[in-house]
Design a protein around this nucleic acid. Sequence first.
DNA 1: GAGTCAAATATTATCGATAATCGTTCAAAG
DNA 2: CTTTGAACGATTATCGATAATATTTGACTC
Lengths: 196, 196
Amino acid sequence: MTGALKPGDRLVELKIAGEMATSQAPVREALRELEAMGVVETLRNKGARVRVISDEELRQIYDVRAQLEGYASELASASGPALLSRLEDCVGKMRKAARKGDSMAFADHNMAFHRAIVEGSGNTVLLGMWETLNVKMRTMVNVARSSRNLVDLAESHMPIVDAIAAGDGARAHEAAKQHVLDNKPVMTAEGPDAGQ
Amino acid sequence: MTGALKPGDRLVELKIAGEMATSQAPVREALRELEAMGVVETLRNKGARVRVISDEELRQIYDVRAQLEGYASELASASGPALLSRLEDCVGKMRKAARKGDSMAFADHNMAFHRAIVEGSGNTVLLGMWETLNVKMRTMVNVARSSRNLVDLAESHMPIVDAIAAGDGARAHEAAKQHVLDNKPVMTAEGPDAGQ
DNA sequence: GAGTCAAATATTATCGATAATCGTTCAAAG
DNA sequence: CTTTGAACGATTATCGATAATATTTGACTC
């Protein structure tokens, strides 16, 4: 699980089974599960390898995530005050982590914030799709921002919180959508602007 | 595949293996694949059963689909004329099937229409999510409309086509979203209005 | 020297059997 | 009569070995 394997690495069933002191069958099961989560991909009779997500696909994921979280925020605006305090708590912890430059903790609280919104939507299908996209993104190494940017990033969540607090679904939708799009990675080959 | 199994039916691996004149392993693989597609669900140590989609989940699927197809239409508005002729072709075939009262053919062309839009978006991630939702819906028996309604239903696609033809992304987004929501099934228990 | 076919190798897919696990039944005690 | 607990039955999970398949290597022909 925590083993450092690079994208594109081949995953040979019997080899892993030997290292794990188990048989081929459980490894197969695990690989099938990872495949369903989108972490690895398997080609028939050719075996599994760690899935490599192209820049283009990553950008597409952000686009879809923006739509999904926009809609989730819209629904969550009709939720109770429990969600709101949870969101404010997340932002508070993000601010603290940002000041300390702890990008790991920041990423955790950031994730918790977004998850809280999607959970708060009350739409379990939506939550399932969001989680699928999330797992795919996790395979990327998209941390390592400067602490200065982290502070700004923490604050950039507030428009969403404000809109949900006001119960303004349309505004929350737009704010969440924009928030995700603002963090969408820029194209590496063509025009690498300072996006976020 | 074409075997008639009702939702909720248990799927015993060795039993199926016996009927198929094969071993347990391939059946397991197949069940795992079906699980990934959302057709069956497996409980640990309890086996697989045909997934039963509740009314509430079906309605949630429609809500998410509305968002996804709205966004797809927005993107597809920037696509070329090839998509447009394909969409018009689908509507034409839908009209024909509607007049003949052929609900099976209608469902096929209807599906082709919506798929064309999502494919035309050029976002493969979006396409993947849409297909997942679609497979889940397929397990439902949501055909059997009167031929009168089919004619109306065919025409209800035109606002989407018009908006895409005009290259108006925002209008296409809204039209597609509304189209899906208009077809969202109503709640069975509370207030079964004439939605459609 | 280049191309093609066959053997060798590496790896997945499948098999038959066994172990582990869960729900259920039945009997005995309170 | 109820409740507890152990044995049973059914089913999944795992094992070790074998078969099937794809890729690579190597020799042989032209």
